[in-house]
Nucleic acid binder design. Structure first.
Length: 926
DNA sequence: AATAAAAAAAAA
């Protein structure tokens, strides 16, 4: 034993070893940061983790609840032990000098290249040896010491691999350093109650534990907390002082959680009518009467119905019950787009406000939530002292506190609404995926529009369901019709994770099925009676009008020319009034169709074009204009024609008297058809029956099915041909009764071998789907079952920003900028708004309103269109300092005496038209 | 031989 040094008390921890120093009046001792973090981890265990999470952890440690809690506090209290190294301590020069002058730290190796998380991971196995943690056992799962070391090494969000010889060992520091690390481990261990080592540490449990460690560290590292603690921590660093101090931390730790908004909201007992402004419909009644009374365990609920059938309310009611039954602290409501997330955020916030008894913060999660004005309206404290909320909410309890708005934190909130991508990042090999899994697995995971994803994203979703199944986390999937194969894949993934089944459950449409996550528990489905009530109550018969067309080739005089057919089917609108949509498959088809219709239509007909290739602000204006007239409470015009692309399939609650569409795969066709006669209202006599016109592209003989070259690979050949074949001979579609049959016929075909072309295309389509799933597998973390080394959650060459939750052509944000003959640069074609050279914030930084204003002018564009474009000027250098502005690509358009001109490169000529949007003309193309 | 819509990106 070395002599007792100044600052080192009899248990051997030196208070001069600092843990935090940035922005603090004096360095904060490492021991106290470790004890703080242990205390917060304990508070998280008691107050934040859901029962299923505690169970998974306790089972993974093969022990009981209270032992598991002590172990987690212990390990959390080790997370920064790698800071007791010369390399780290040198980072604060004066603290380092003070430390060395008072103690014996001769070894000053370390050039700062060894990060403290890695140092901790390297040092821990040896440090844990005296506590009986096995070191060199063959089976990886038994290498307890290495597992704990990896958890500690992963506390910055990435797991590391340090088995085998590692150069960093030399930089840990010998002598005093090594003694200090041992002393820290000893004091922390005793302070948390000297938990015995567990007999196992399961991998899936370790991931959650890592999440707890990361979260505890974040909470305990807040500057205001450290400042406050600075004056409170004991003078001595012995075991006794540490134990006393840890006990005293229970109130401050709980306060940290409360202030951050982490907790379990309590729900009031309310009836359906108290939550929503109407009585339950057939679907909702069936959930309330047939499902809620029998649910007593986590599981997967699949609800299928058409959009507008009240799935959201049904899901919220079911999620509330599942949360109560499972002890989950809330839910995450996942949606396919940012726009639908914004909309759902408002609804969920209202729901939460009515339901919550106390704080129940709701967060909004997507990349642009910071420019959602409603979400950004914070609670403000007025000078009088009473908290006031800037919003129309009945209660301020649903406003997310500041902490939850920080990066990567929103998913930890009790209630969250956002894009599904935010959840899918949990199963990609991205930084902090353990934290995302922690946030998700404590709640009910609700996925809206589960049919809306391609094979790539669905594959990621399956992967996530597998993990959530393993965590015993309840899930609700909402969907329109799903091909039975796809439904089976989703259900199967969850069952596999949960270790039940496979039950090969088939999902009824419309209706619901609940698959419990407990072996032996029976599946529950909507009763035949209720299902019949649901079907007959909402049956609509669509007249299907398939028109052979020649797709934009040849003469307009040809009666089968697409343009001529469009005019013909729209004639009643022009002559007698009414509202119709023409949904096209490509932007340029939509632009051309719009020109044809606009030039042909009479004065009184309002013709509008909508697609994605408008500046964001303009697209919003057009969307608002359309929904304000054709939405549920819309001020309906006498006659209106909307020409659009697939944007019309997405979420917009519009109602047309007549729907005209290009041929698309069956699922999308039915989705589009849903925009026809959506609400109950009086219609022009000619449109008394709902009618869908399908423009079916044909070859020169007017019979043979062809896929127009201009459609590229937007839709698979097989899906178009199979849909085309299915539609022949069909003249009505009864919704919802006949929907599943039509979908199955196309997506799960029984007899295609008779048709060699179809069967070849089917193979091609399946190969494509398989390739997409294969691509998805590349970026995904392994399944929890059989996961041996945690490093597999992080091991990847792909940097964080490359992680992708959607497959498809790269896309850029393009800003049309104008330059006049004098070389002046403008944001608008009139030359009134100069291109902002700097922001109005400190150091010329851009304020968020300014960033928002610029982003509002950008247009999403497939990246390959820009290939060969060499911008004549760069955007202002100051834009490079802003994360959003620096990614914008300029498109320079000349201001000519005649008005704004096009930009040209390669074979392209591109200009921005106020009515048509961005027009991309390609020379040589027909 | 050509192409929809959709998302993402700061922590201790």
């Amino acid at each position: 034993m070395e002599g007792v040094e100044l600052g080192v008390d009899h248990d051997g921890v030196d208070a001069g070893i600092w843990g935090k120093s940035n922005h603090l009046p004096r360095p904060y001792p490492l021991l106290w940061h470790l004890i703080d973090t242990a205390a917060v981890a304990g508070a998280l265990w008691d107050r934040y983790l859901a029962p299923n999470q505690r169970r998974v952890i306790a089972e993974g440690l093969a022990t009981d609840d209270s032992h598991a809690k002590s172990l987690i506090m212990f390990w959390a209290g080790l997370h920064d032990v790698g800071k007791a190294t010369p390399g780290f301590q040198k980072k604060d020069g004066s603290a380092f000098d003070a430390l060395r002058s008072a103690g014996s730290y001769e070894d000053v190796v370390g050039d700062g290249s060894l990060r403290h998380d890695t140092a901790g991971q390297l040092a821990l196995p040896g440090l844990l040896a005296p506590l009986g943690y096995p070191q060199l056992v063959r089976r990886v799962s038994d290498r307890l010491a290495y597992r704990v070391a990896q958890i500690v090494g992963g506390h910055h969000g990435r797991f590391q691999q340090t088995s085998g010889p590692h150069g960093g060992q030399l930089q840990l520091g010998k002598g005093g350093w090594s003694k200090q690390r041992a002393a820290l481990v000893r004091v922390v261990h005793e302070a948390v109650g000297s938990p015995k080592r567990p007999s196992a540490i399961g991998a899936a449990a370790s991931v959650l534990v890592t999440g707890v460690v990361i979260l505890a560290d974040w909470l305990a590292s807040q500057e205001h907390f450290l400042r406050q603690q600075s004056s409170r921590v004991p003078q001595y660093t012995g075991t006794e002082a540490a134990s006393t101090h840890l006990a005293a931390l229970s109130a401050p730790a709980a306060a940290l959680l409360d202030d951050a908004g982490l907790g379990s909201p309590s729900f009031r007992a309310v009836r359906f009518d108290d939550l929503f402004p109407h009585r339950p419909n057939a679907l909702q009644r069936s959930i309330i009467e047939e499902l809620l009374p029998v649910v007593d365990s986590p599981g997967l609920l699949v609800v299928t119905a058409a959009t507008g059938d009240g799935k959201t309310e049904a899901a919220l009611v079911a999620a509330k019950r599942l949360a109560e039954v499972c002890g989950a602290h809330g839910f995450f409501f996942a949606l396919p787009t940012m726009a639908t997330s914004d909309e759902m955020y408002r609804r969920v916030r209202a729901f939460a406000a009515r339901l919550a008894a106390g704080p129940a913060p709701v967060t909004l999660l997507h990349s642009m939530s910071w420019l959602n004005a409603e979400y950004e309206a914070r609670a403000v404290v007025d000078p009088g002292g009473a908290a006031e909320v800037v919003s129309d909410d009945p209660s301020g309890d649903v406003v997310a506190p500041e902490w939850l708005r920080g990066p990567k934190r929103g998913l930890l909130a009790p209630m969250a609404v956002g894009t599904v991508d935010q959840a899918l990042l949990a199963v990609l090999t991205t930084k902090h995926n353990a934290l995302r899994l922690l946030g998700l697995s404590g709640k009910v995971f609700v996925v809206d529009e589960a049919h809306a994803y391609d094979d790539f994203t669905t594959s990621l979703l399956c992967h996530l369901l597998n993990w959530l199944g393993a965590y015993g986390c309840p899930v609700v999937l909402l969907s329109a019709t799903l091909p039975s194969s796809q439904a089976a894949t989703l259900v199967g993934a969850y069952e596999e994770g949960a270790g039940v089944g496979p039950t090969n459950t088939s999902v009824p449409y419309p209706g619901w099925t609940f698959v419990p996550a407990i072996q032996g528990r029976a599946t529950v489905s909507i009763s035949p009676t209720m299902r019949e009530a649901l079907v007959s109550g909402r049956t609509v018969e669509f007249t299907l009008d398939v028109r052979p067309v020649r797709h934009l080739v040849g003469s307009e005089r040809d009666p089968a020319d697409r343009r001529a057919v469009v005019r013909q089917v729209l004639a009643p609108v022009a002559e007698q009034g009414g509202c119709a949509a023409v949904v096209c498959n490509t932007v340029s088809d939509a632009q051309q169709t719009y020109r044809v219709v606009r030039d042909w239509a009479s004065e009184g007909v309002d013709v509008v074009l909508l697609h994605s290739r408008f500046p964001a602000r303009r697209r919003e204006e057009i969307t608002t204009q359309i929904t304000s007239r054709l939405g549920k409470e819309g001020n309906r015009p006498k006659s209106m024609i909307v020409v659009a692309t697939q944007v019309l399939e997405q979420s917009l609650d519009l109602d047309f008297d007549l729907l005209v569409t290009d041929l698309v795969p069956m699922a999308q066709l039915l989705q589009r058809a849903g925009r026809c006669h959506r609400h109950h209202r009086t219609r022009p006599p000619w449109a008394a029956q709902p009618r869908v016109v399908v423009l079916d592209p044909r070859g020169p003989d007017g019979v043979e099915h062809v896929r127009p070259a201009a459609w590229g690979d937007v839709y698979a050949r097989y899906l178009l041909r199979a849909t085309h074949l299915r539609l022949m001979g069909v003249d009505t579609i009864a919704v919802p009764r006949a929907v599943q049959g039509h979908v199955e016929a196309v997506y799960v075909p029984q007899e295609i071998h008779n048709d060699p072309v179809l069967s070849a295309e089917h193979n091609e389509c399946r190969a494509q789907a398989m390739a997409e799933r294969g691509t998805a597998e590349l970026g995904v973390i392994p399944e929890p079952v059989g996961l041996a080394d945690l490093v597999a959650l992080s091991q990847t060459e792909t940097p964080e920003w490359r992680a992708s939750t959607r497959l498809g052509a790269e896309s850029e944000r393009v800003l049309c900028c104008y330059h006049d003959p004098d070389g002046m640069q403008w944001l608008d074609p009139q030359g009134r708004i100069p291109l902002p050279q700097r922001g109005s914030g400190p150091d010329g930084r851009f304020r968020s309103e300014e960033v928002r204003a610029i982003l509002q002018e950008t247009i999403p564009l497939r990246a390959d269109i820009l290939t060969g474009y060499d911008p004549p000027a760069a955007l202002p250098a100051s834009w490079g300092n802003n994360a959003w502005l620096k990614r914008i690509r300029p498109l320079w358009l000349p201001i000519l005496p005649t008005g704004p001109g096009p930009a040209t490169w390669a074979r392209r000529s591109v200009h921005l038209d106020p009515e048509l949007g961005l027009v991309v003309a390609t020379a040589g193309a027909e």
